[in-house]
Simulated assay, not measured.
Amino acid sequence: MLFVAGALAVLSGLFYAAGNNDIGSLGTTMCQYGDTFCDHPSYVFVGAVLAALWGTFVSIR
């Protein structure tokens, strides 16, 4: 689950950069299919935080 949280955090950063037109044509394609996430990358970041919390609470050590 912590891997999923890390992946979501990276995606949040990519959507933030795509929303600010910082990554060129890749950003245009990303925002074409996920315009809500380009407008509000915090939605994906909140999912990353929740996944990290869940992974922390259910991990067995």
Rank of each mutant, 00 (worst) to 15 (best):
P41D: 03
F15N: 01
G47M: 15
T28A: 13
N20P: 01
F45I: 11
I23G: 01
F3G: 11
L11C: 11
S42M: 13
F3I: 14
Y16Q: 03
F3S: 13
A48M: 07
G24L: 09
A7F: 15
G47I: 04
L26D: 09
D22R: 10
S42C: 09
T28E: 15
F15E: 01
L2Q: 13
T36V: 14
F37A: 04
D22W: 14
S42L: 15
F37L: 15
S12V: 00
L2R: 13
V46D: 13
H40W: 12
C31A: 08
G6N: 09
V44R: 00
L26C: 09
M30Q: 04
V46Y: 15
G19C: 05
V46F: 15
P41V: 04
G34F: 12
G27C: 08
L26E: 12
D35V: 08
M30S: 03
G19E: 03
F45R: 06
V10K: 08
Y16C: 06
G34W: 06
Y33E: 09
S42E: 15
F37K: 00
C31P: 01
Y33P: 03
F3R: 13
M30I: 13
G24E: 09
A17R: 02
F37R: 01
G34N: 09
A17I: 00
A17F: 08
